[in-house]
Design a binder for these strands. Structure first.
Length: 950
RNA sequence: GCGCCAGUAGCUCAGUUGGCUAGAGCACACCCCUGAGACGGGUGAGGUCGAAGGUUCGAUUCCUUUCUGGCGCACCA
């Protein structure tokens, strides 16, 4: 803390009832105790005694906190204060409010902390939760603590596992675009004996002619949770594989460690099946535009065509190669093809080299590309590298044979992992063609971009040089050329229109200890079997040595729990009735990622104690009614990760009939980051925040008196600018803390923590107190008669506060309260004992309006003023609409847009254009002002002004 | 490079469909209170509303360009 003035405790006998930090603490602890004892914020579910179905519901959710060993920082209470304020207002407005909190407690950070300290994560995590809970309770947040839950509770994660099993037991029905139980699919196939496509090019076969193994693997390949061979992101430093969403610029989102690519068989979620709905349903939610845009970009829908190219190897025709292109209209300009180094065809090309090709170089290139980390690959992205394969492909439009190359600028994970290269109209292809002297042809005439052959023209235009005996695109604008060629490709059965997404399936396996075990096991043949619902939860085994296994490849630590891993079908609870109970099984040793628990916690809050279902249906239908969670507040860092995953799970649960809404979070809001000032000496070294003084023009280091520069940065230990909320509360109280964080600026804005501003809001609380309470006696100070001006202002203040809270503009609501208190303080003399500025009724309404922000001082004032019950349960003061408009309105008179004078006009005259104009022009002052000039035109704005043009 | 958001007093921010002399808190100066100080109260100074064009009777507000900062995406064919 700086030297900023701390409130002095009341001295002597003069003002023993002064609002000081000490009194704030006493008041706050007193009311927190009473709220807790009286379960003041307990939300009742439908069916419970006392539940009032006539009230509207309001489900307000904070993003799941991840309790770290370091405890709370000032960023946490920002969003929590905001939701607390709106929840308190809604209760006073008569809503049934659901406002729960729990803990996201599995995952890497907790495990890493445990590794550092050498203490088991079960212990460190519980301790961190206790610390967080204690700290949060000191803020006086109105959570329904009876609904508290943690993802590490077996009673919770049994249902996380259950949801995974739902996905395992479901497939995506393309016809209806929704998930359905895979047993339905199996039933229909058996009944109708349909023909199915077998994997690995085994052709098509009738269902009943398939072996049981073929049937099983066909079904397994369609599950929403499936075991897939994929190139995954392997992070050796974290000791686990990561989802695409967790990798940023080739480094891990958490920790910033390099990530390499590795083919691996892992559990996946078929989130790509939902790409279309995840995209389309963004229209249904009230979310920040930036967040919706991020999800749209992440899903990355693109329209184009799939085109088959005939491949020619040394032994002649070698099947077809499919490519995806957004610009099928440029097919005539495809002069070569490129495969990703991981493309399966590359293996064949190396095994059967074409004559005259340097196979060693090709093999070396593919090897190098595989071993290169993503970071390296991107760092070198400017320079195109590649190797010729010697194999050729036939361009179906021109009939020409074009060479096939391998290059790492083509990614295996997008489209088919192969492209047709059109160097004339794609910059990347052009760069590559330049590097390897490949032909470039122009097939589109782009307006405004002259064709020189020195650069690609990637825009749209009219097709040229695009004609064959069968087909001509020449002269067609791009859109029509696309349609024409797709039609032709379709007729020839060598292509069709295709929608492609950037989104990939979600990698769900983690090689870590501290996570939910997957409810699945493998038999001796390596076939996987789900654990029966009745046998859940699959408990995480106690493991003394939970360190990740040192290895170049992923090895889950759970594999060390031999006795747990090696089990029988009976012990593991697998397929009771279909498999002998003594059959040998080994459990899945990968665990679920951190995201699993946070994908559905908002549902569990509706009925956290429900024992026979993941959520009680009636409770879910009540609290999620309408558009789900009514307000969800949290940081924007989860814009694509958590928020995309949770939407996906929710949609699956919806499809399977387990939840009642399509989207989980109707309205979303991101609070801004709280930054902090940091001070640097002229040589760039850092000065701790508490060793700096403000000097006349700038800031100086206290010890030396030398000037230092102030910057704004994220709070971090290294910058020595971290603020501990406990210290602030000790110095000013929780009400002042809450008020300060809300007054700093708009909730969504990033803003610096400035300790110098805290005394300002503390003084406001003191003024509020002193306005209503005699500091010498502790008795209320009340006016005998209501001042009509203050009455009017009070109505306005109450209306503005409610309106501003609705739009989450807490800073302006507080400003209105400050103005109200300042106005009410002015007219009365502090020395006149017993006489205040507001009547008891007015005072109670003012206290009500302040209660959402500073609930403790409000309860105390409410009690001292003789309010009944708790102000937290009081009704929000009624606003008389008539009090919001003035009887007399001040109208500005402008001449040519410049204000010359102002008139008092009756509200009725001011509201009507014609009457306003007449009243103004007839006014002696206006006549004097015009001095004979005749206005050519008068522009009247009702209630505001009149502008005269002369 | 592309997209989104933001630039208002020394600092942090208000300014709700274009309209009144652009406001608040902190900081600053002065005055009152006091033996003196702290607390408190009062008064005041401080802004070409990032820049340049345009639309309009009138622009901080709308449009275009540009500068600066933040965030996101980035070899996705």
């Amino acid at each position: 803390m700086t030297e900023a003035a701390a409130p002095t405790p009341a001295k002597g006998e003069e003002t023993p009832f002064r609002y000081t930090a000490q009194m704030a603490e006493e008041i706050e602890l007193k009311w927190q105790g009473r709220w807790e004892k009286g379960q003041a914020f307990r939300a009742l579910n439908p069916g419970e005694a006392g539940f009032d179905a006539a009230r509207p519901k309001f489900y307000c959710l904070d993003m799941f906190p991840y309790p770290s060993g370091a405890g709370l920082h000032v960023g946490h209470p920002e969003g929590y204060t905001a939701t607390d304020i709106i929840c308190r207002l809604r209760r006073m407005q008569g809503f049934n409010v659901l406002h729960p909190l729990g803990w996201d407690a599995f995952g890497l950070p907790a495990e890493q902390y445990a590794l550092q300290t050498g203490v088991h994560p079960a212990i460190t995590t519980k301790k961190a939760i206790d610390t967080f809970r204690n700290q949060l309770k000191r803020f006086g947040f109105s959570y329904d603590w009876s609904r508290e839950l943690a993802t590490i509770d077996p009673d919770y994660y049994r249902w996380t596992q259950w949801i995974w099993l739902q996905c395992y037991g479901a497939y995506f029905d393309e016809a209806t675009a929704r998930a359905r139980p895979i047993s339905e699919l199996e039933f229909v196939l058996a009944r109708d004996n349909n023909e199915v496509e077998l994997p690995q090019g085994d052709g098509r076969r009738r269902w009943r002619d398939c072996t049981p193994q073929q049937q099983q693997s066909w079904l397994d390949a369609r599950r929403l949770a499936y075991l897939g061979e994929q190139t995954v992101n392997w992070c050796p430093q974290l000791g686990t594989v990561l989802a695409n969403e967790e990798v940023i610029n080739g480094r891990s989102e958490r920790g910033g460690f390099p990530v390499s690519r590795l083919p691996l068989r892992q559990w996946m979620f078929r989130i790509t099946a939902y790409a279309d709905r995840l995209l389309a349903d963004l229209q249904l939610v009230d979310w920040p535009v930036s967040t919706r845009a991020m999800q749209e970009e992440w899903i990355g829908r693109s329209e184009g065509a799939l085109v088959q190219f005939e491949v020619h190897g040394p032994a002649g025709s070698a099947g077809d190669l499919a490519v995806y292109t957004r610009r099928p209209d440029t097919l005539f300009g495809a002069t070569y093809m490129v495969l990703a180094p991981e493309h399966p065809l590359v293996v064949q090309m190396i095994a059967n080299p074409a004559a005259g090709v340097d196979v060693a170089a090709l093999r070396a290139y593919v090897e190098a590309a595989r071993n290169r980390s993503e970071v390296d690959r991107q760092a070198e992205s400017v320079i195109k590298t590649g190797a010729a394969t010697g194999w050729m492909a036939r361009n179906p439009a021109t009939g020409a044979l074009i060479p096939i190359w391998v290059a790492d600028y083509v990614l295996m994970g997008y489209g088919t992992g192969a492209i047709m290269a059109v160097p004339g109209h794609d910059q990347r292809d052009f760069d590559f063609a330049q590097a390897f002297s490949l032909p470039v042809v122009q097939v589109v005439d782009v307006a405004g971009q002259e064709w020189t052959g020195d650069a690609a023209t990637p825009g749209e235009g009219r097709a040229i040089n695009s004609a064959s005996a069968e087909l001509s695109l020449d002269g067609l604008p791009t859109a029509q050329a696309k349609a024409r060629i797709i039609e032709w490709l379709q007729k020839k059965v060598i292509g069709q229109a295709q929608v492609q997404y950037r989104l990939r399936d979600w990698l769900f396996s983690r090689q870590r200890y501290w996570g939910e075990p997957m409810p699945v096991a493998f038999d001796e043949a390596g076939i996987h079997h789900p654990v029966d619902e009745a046998a859940l939860p699959v408990r995480l085994p106690e493991l003394a040595d939970f360190k990740p296994v040192e290895s170049a490849t992923p090895v889950p630590p759970l594999s060390k729990a031999r006795q747990w891993v090696e089990t029988t079908a009976g012990a593991a609870g697998i397929c009771v009735g279909r498999i002998p109970p003594d059959a040998v099984m080994h459990r899945e040793t990968n665990t679920m990622p951190n995201w699993a628990g946070s994908c559905w916690y908002y549902l569990r809050y509706c009925a956290p104690a429900c024992a026979d279902r993941f959520v009680d249906s009636r409770a879910e239908r009540y609290w999620m009614a309408g558009r789900g969670v009514d307000l969800y507040v949290g940081g924007s860092e989860h814009a694509v990760l958590h928020l995309l995953y949770a939407r996906f799970w929710h949609k699956v649960l919806f499809d399977l009939g387990h939840v009642s809404t399509v989207e989980p979070f109707g309205k979303l809001f991101h609070q801004g980051l709280i930054t902090s000032f940091a001070y640097t000496r002229q040589d760039g070294s850092l000065v701790p925040v508490d060793e700096v003084d403000e000097a006349a023009p700038g800031f100086v280091e206290r010890a030396t008196g030398k000037p230092v520069a102030r910057t704004v940065a994220k709070m971090s230990k290294s910058l020595r600018n971290v603020v501990n909320p406990d210290d602030v509360i000790a110095q000013y109280g929780a009400d002042a803390f809450r008020l300060y964080e809300m007054y700093m600026g708009p909730l969504e804005a990033s803003k610096p923590w400035n300790p110098r501003d805290i005394p300002g809001v503390f003084r406001f609380l003191q003024r509020l107190w002193r306005l209503l309470i005699d500091e010498r006696t502790g008795q209320p100070l009340l006016a005998r008669e209501a001042d009509p001006r203050l009455e009017r202002l009070l109505h306005r203040t109450v209306a503005k506060v409610a309106h501003d809270i609705d739009r989450l503009a807490f800073n302006t609501a507080i400003a209105a309260l400050i103005e109200m208190v300042n106005e009410a303080t002015r007219p009365f003399d502090l020395t006149d004992a017993g006489a205040g500025g507001l009547t008891r009724d007015q005072a109670l309404r003012l206290v009500s309006a302040a209660a959402p922000f500073a609930p403790h001082i409000a309860e105390e004032l409410w009690g001292r003023l003789g309010g009944t019950g708790l102000v937290a349960h009081a009704s929000w003061p009624a606003v008389d609409a008539a009090m919001l408009v003035d009887e007399k309105v001040e109208i500005a008179v402008q001449v040519l847009g410049k204000v010359k004078l102002r008139l008092q006009v009756s509200a009725a005259d001011a509201a009507d254009v014609a009457r306003l104009e007449a009243a103004a022009l007839a006014h002696p002052e206006v006549i004097a002002l015009l001095a004979g000039r005749v206005p050519k035109k008068a522009i009247a704005v009702p209630g505001r002004l009149i502008n005269l043009v002369v």
